[in-house]
Simulated scan of single mutants.
Amino acid sequence: MICEEAYQYQQLHDHMMMMDLSPSPLSSTISPSSSPMSPSNNTDSNEEERLEDVNLSGMSLQSLPNPSLNLGIICKLDLSNNHIEKIPESLTARLLNLVALDIHSNQIKALPNSIGCLSKLKILNVSGNFLVYLPKTIQNCRSLEELNANFNELVRLPDSIGLELTNLRKLCVNSNKLISLPTSITYLTSLRVLDARLNCLMILPDDLENLINLEILNVSQNFQYLTALPSSIGLLMNLLELDISYNKITVLPESIGCMRRLRKLSAEGNPIVSPPIEVVEQSLQAVREYLSQKMNGRLVNTSPKKKSWGFRKLVKYGTFNGRSRAWTREEREGLIMPEYRPIDILASNRFPGISPRSIFSPRTYFSR
């Protein structure tokens, strides 16, 4: 174990040391008379530090050794595809210039509270772990634009997640155990993509119309849990793709008829009764027209005419009378109604004691 930790430390140290820490050519322009402790010199010194990407993906790391160099120069850190179980609080607290953090496909059960110190973080990928919740401090990552938390065990999101992450453009929380989405999510006015499929969602928040920039909404495969959509879903005027497939939705909100920019609607796998299934199977335009007319109270039958499999009239062909005769034109063209008595006449008062059930009874009448 000691050897393994030493190896991991050496690997991390080697990767860190590969970063270019050479002084910038700008340093030669600094006047020798400038005081090394003057404010202008400190500013130049900060500009000279070059931010670096560190890639430690797929190195079978079980933990992160304490590096001896300044973590403040790292802007992108990739720790994905390892066996890491915990991110130290002290590590994230020192990644002050971090813009992208990728820790997907590890064995992490909780994120450190100090993740809220990453005020410059724009991309966070924590998918493929064992997270049950996200720390409330994540709302302090106000520069966050993309949050990927797919394939975890999340049962809820922070209640106030939408109040502070006003720059969030993409939120992916599919393949978790979410029962609902917090109401504050409707404050994410910059959101473009919301992927919440493969959860246990029972309800969607009202006031979805506040997501004025949302273009893709996927709440498919919540199966028996999601039974209805809020009427506000039709007020997402910039929505391009809506996937509600494989739920228990029976009625599409009439407001969907107002979604003129919608170009893709996936609704298969639902027991939809309104609009009728034959309308849903036609096209998105047919669905929009149906719902729009229903909303305006001037619904007409837009379903296609079903093919009739009956005959106009049946002809009594004398098949069982043992005689053949010439057919008239009307009989040949099948325009004459038959004169056969229906079988239920056997159950009438004229034939007491005889019923269709006795005729088709499985008894053996020849047993006597």
Rank of each mutant, 00 (worst) to 15 (best):
12 L>A: 10
203 I>Y: 09
326 A>W: 05
347 A>T: 05
4 E>Y: 10
235 L>T: 02
269 G>T: 12
220 S>W: 10
41 N>W: 10
324 S>I: 03
77 L>Y: 01
82 N>G: 08
232 S>H: 09
128 G>S: 04
168 L>D: 00
17 M>L: 14
66 N>Y: 10
339 E>A: 04
14 D>A: 06
342 P>I: 03
247 N>A: 08
157 L>F: 05
303 S>R: 10
271 P>A: 12
181 L>N: 09
124 L>C: 03
68 S>V: 06
94 R>G: 02
138 I>D: 06
249 I>V: 08
147 L>V: 01
92 T>G: 02
368 R>K: 15
69 L>I: 09
86 K>F: 01
152 N>A: 08
140 N>F: 00
306 K>Y: 01
65 P>C: 07
118 L>V: 00
324 S>H: 03
149 A>V: 14
223 F>C: 07
115 I>C: 07
80 S>Y: 07
27 S>G: 04
323 R>V: 02
221 Q>S: 11
279 V>F: 04
45 S>E: 12
225 Y>G: 02
332 R>M: 07
198 L>P: 00
147 L>T: 01
53 D>K: 14
80 S>K: 09
242 L>C: 07
23 P>I: 05
125 N>T: 05
127 S>R: 14
142 R>E: 07
78 D>E: 09
9 Y>M: 10
71 L>Q: 06
179 I>H: 12
48 E>N: 15
192 R>P: 00
110 A>R: 15
167 N>Q: 13
173 V>Y: 15
231 S>E: 12
41 N>V: 12
38 S>G: 14
244 I>G: 03
217 L>E: 09
318 G>S: 10
55 N>P: 05
149 A>F: 08
282 Q>I: 05
103 I>S: 05
214 L>V: 07
34 S>T: 09
211 L>K: 13
155 V>F: 06
91 L>D: 01
253 P>T: 04
286 A>F: 06
183 T>S: 15
309 W>K: 08
302 T>V: 03
120 K>L: 00
361 S>I: 05
293 Q>A: 13
176 N>W: 12
341 R>F: 10
8 Q>T: 08
